[in-house]
Computed example of a mutant assay.
Amino acid sequence: MQPSERDEIRDLLKRTAVALKEGDVPFALCGGYAAWVRGAPEPDHDADFLVLASEAERAAKVLADAGLQVEDPAEDWLVKVVSGGSFVDVLWRTCGHPVESDLIERSEVLPVLSVQMPVLQATDIVITKLMALDEHYCDFSRMLPVARALREQVDWAEVRRSVEDNPFAAVFLELLDRLDVVPRTSAA
């Protein structure tokens, strides 16, 4: 029996995390799989990790030294770990900003597919997902199940403060208010 694409992504996620742990590279699971660990639906595409911008080169070397296939895409803010038709993104910039230690330090070590690894806090997951919204990518249908699933774990006031300059994120938060997914904000 051939492994499914989901099995392939899950295996690659675990192998990437173990390599980063063994290489003593500070990291955190982020994106859809971080949301999944915290109760959101499982994503149907890649997995994502954050590493410190200052550790980007070392992270790529650690992954390659662990026998993983590391590809350097055209983007200058990530590497891809590839296996078959699946990949894991290892990012050192998110939303146009270098990953800083406080984001990773706030992560919580949780079991993910039997591997203990740092996972972004729910508030940080939502903030990074919302800050990625722009005129080229504005898919609220992917965000709504995440917001619903994580709503009790998220500091929505912090989310609002962090994304207030992104009009796409602001509109999504208004949608969440109107759907009674999150507590309504008081009129200013």
Rank of each mutant, 00 (worst) to 15 (best):
I104A: 07
C95G: 14
K61T: 14
T94V: 13
A40G: 06
P111V: 10
I127Y: 04
H45T: 12
V109R: 14
D102I: 09
D72Q: 14
H97R: 15
T128C: 06
E75T: 06
A74S: 14
S83T: 08
V90D: 06
V81D: 02
S101I: 10
Q121D: 11
Q116F: 08
Q69N: 14
P111T: 12
A59C: 03
E100F: 03
Y33Q: 12
Y33V: 12
S54N: 04
S114I: 03
V90G: 13
V119W: 02
G39E: 07
V119M: 00
A35K: 10
R38Q: 14
E42G: 01
A64D: 09
M131R: 15
D124K: 02
A53N: 10
V62M: 00
I125T: 12
A122F: 04
V25L: 08
K61S: 14
A34F: 02
L63Q: 05
A47Q: 09
D72N: 15
E105Q: 14
V126C: 11
L78F: 10
D65N: 13
S107F: 02
V25Q: 05
P118M: 00
V112F: 10
T123W: 03
P118N: 02
R93M: 13
P118R: 01
V88D: 08
V62A: 04
D48T: 14
G31D: 06
V99Y: 06
V62W: 00
V37H: 09
A66S: 15
V115A: 07
P118I: 05
P98F: 02
V62G: 00
M117Y: 01
T123L: 03
L52Q: 10
V62H: 00
A47N: 10
E57G: 14
W36Y: 15
F27W: 03
W92N: 05
P98R: 01
V109P: 09
F87E: 09
P98W: 00
P118S: 03
L78A: 09
G67Q: 11
G67M: 07
G67W: 08
K129F: 05
A66K: 02
I127E: 01
E57T: 13
L113V: 06
A56V: 09
Q69C: 10
L120P: 02
